[in-house]
């Protein structure tokens, strides 16, 4: 068994790159998931029925498909339709689509906590639709979903481990464990270092989320 020091002197660069890959994917995918999730949510609450159906359908597909199944479809099945995506692109798309559906679910739930009364009150004060969204709906929906959104960020990071299922260079934090395992005997140490980074990142994100939530939580 290798010590942490030996392992890092031999694979330190690779580890930094792996950490970078995982963090990079996490940030990109989470940002994409937020944008997509908000767009889908707008569709789901707009008064246009077909768009509502589309939004609902989208959410049901991507919240229920296993990440591995989606990735396999993107990597192996799409080329048969002559849609060729790079491995990195496939991971990026899969890890964006799945969290985007959860993002939309959380936003819908957050908005449903607002209740008809406050919206009617805003309406009776003479606010237009956009003023109601700006003053009442958005701030409350965002503030009441802080915990879910930080959980979603952690979930997104965990889902980026899918990157280990395709050949990526540099590998991600999970992929590098198999890489080191095939190149040296340091597998268990490598596992522990990766596990450490994942868990610490998750805890830090969770703590930040808790702190923000405490600050902005809406008493009801």
């Amino acid at each position: 068994m290798m010590s942490v020091g030996e392992l890092l002197s031999q694979f330190g660069d690779k580890y930094l790159q792996a950490l970078w890959t995982t963090y990079g994917l996490t940030v990109l995918c989470f940002a994409g998931a937020l944008v997509l999730g908000i767009a889908i949510t707008v569709m789901r609450i707009c008064p246009i029925k077909p768009l509502q159906w589309f939004g609902d359908f989208y959410v049901q597909i991507f919240r229920n498909i296993p990440g591995a199944a989606l990735l396999i479809v993107l990597v192996y099945a799409l080329p048969y339709l002559r849609v060729m995506l790079s491995y990195y692109m496939c991971v990026l798309v899969a890890v964006t689509l799945i969290p985007s559906s959860f993002c939309s679910e959380y936003l819908m739930a957050g908005m449903n906590t607002i209740g008809a009364g406050q919206i009617e009150a805003a309406r009776s004060l003479g606010m237009t639709f956009f003023q109601i969204v700006k003053n009442v709906v958005l701030p409350q929906a965002l503030r009441s979903t802080v915990l879910q959104m930080t959980n979603l960020l952690v979930a997104t990071m965990l889902t980026t481990a899918l990157a280990s299922q395709v050949p990526l260079n540099p590998a991600d934090l999970t992929g590098i464990v198999t890489y080191i395992n095939t190149h040296a005997v340091g597998g268990i140490t490598a596992f522990m270092i990766s596990a450490f980074f994942y868990a610490v990142t998750a805890v830090v994100i969770g703590q930040i989320g808790n702190r923000i939530d405490k600050k902005v939580r809406i008493l009801r």
Partner: peptide, 23 residues
């Protein structure tokens, strides 16, 4: 439309369940 919102702003309303903005 805007006209409706404007006229509504001239009529106050107090609800059974208060409906204050919680945030």
């Amino acid at each position: 439309g805007k006209k409706l919102a404007e006229l509504r702003s001239q009529i106050g309303m107090v609800f059974q369940s208060f409906n204050l903005f919680a945030h």
